[in-house]
Design a protein around this nucleic acid. Sequence first.
DNA 1: GACTAACCGGACTAAGAGTCCGATTGGTTG
DNA 2: CAACCAATCGGACTCTTAGTCCGGTTAGTC
Lengths: 191, 191
Amino acid sequence: MAQQRTERVDAVRNRRAILHATEQLLAEGGGEHVSLDRVAALAGVGKGTVFRRFGSRAGLLQALLEERSRGLRDAITNGPPPLGHGGPVRERLLAFLDGLGAIAEGNAVLLSAHEQACAEDKYGDPSYQFWHRHLRTLFAEGSPDLDADFLAHAVLAVFDGELIRRMTSPDDPRRFTRSIQQMATALLDRD
Amino acid sequence: MAQQRTERVDAVRNRRAILHATEQLLAEGGGEHVSLDRVAALAGVGKGTVFRRFGSRAGLLQALLEERSRGLRDAITNGPPPLGHGGPVRERLLAFLDGLGAIAEGNAVLLSAHEQACAEDKYGDPSYQFWHRHLRTLFAEGSPDLDADFLAHAVLAVFDGELIRRMTSPDDPRRFTRSIQQMATALLDRD
DNA sequence: GACTAACCGGACTAAGAGTCCGATTGGTTG
DNA sequence: CAACCAATCGGACTCTTAGTCCGGTTAGTC
């Protein structure tokens, strides 16, 4: 569990620089503007360093996304209800979608880039699997007549960067979250 | 409306050859196996010809997909209920999803390739807009309390090539369609 | 049969992902 | 402190693919 050998300080510094450069490029241009050449140049490191740290373009974006969502994951795993275990399904579902929706609304460009990079291995992504398991559990309890596994995929499929960008405007910044919360609760059994 | 000048026979022949070669490559390898170099070589034409006909990789896949879905579009626009206009919303929704689901299940690889190629202009695709308008109309009538525009996008977001491939097995070839029909009807107002 | 506009093909360019290896350096050990 | 070495660095290199360009060819017309 403990790291086998402490990471060298230059390695740590470079990893930070790379992540920071990636954020910056995402903020400037669109997600397609982030080539690894550019990231390396802006971070002031060589291209090889980027690949040694993150393995691939997909790995880099995944790492960034994971950093942004670690808090929500922790809250679900260890925190109190309604995010953590326990409490009524409806409240837990709303709380989860509120959290994930906020992350998505704040990182729509990153989300698009990640989708494109992970192309069709997105179902193997650890974060994806975590969200999916969580949703599946909630739907299995709250909507026993439907296909919970499918519903979990369906809800996650709506978290599309471009769709979110189109739905999110300054004067209604949470329309996406509100709509997906309405949709998800409509899928629960009516009492 | 009539074509300005009849297309030359070699042009027609080559277009057919290109589409056919694309189908064949999609069937053989995965969607990422279809490079335009390969398509041109297999079709026995030059690369320039592929681009002159279809404009881009995205255009080529779009054309193929449109060919597969023209029947459904026609049936919705001009045919009798439940696909065409008229009749109860629930039946129209089920009929539409049955049709679109069948196309998707039969062309999952093409769907994946198209998603990747169109990247993030998929909301501008004429077919997408057609399906979206149709769904939005149905939800607006059948589910007036929810965000119909959003629901239409949400349902279409689930038509993901990779997801469909994972859900479709020989001994339950229509699980995807069945599940999305259940989901969609659950989103309609209960009577 | 000649004319021309549309069409053909494949060499060429551009760009980006991922690899490789000689040079460098942080950390450790005596 | 000095020497050592394994982890790390960087950028040149390869490979693949989308898309462009233009000289040569041909289908359809008059």
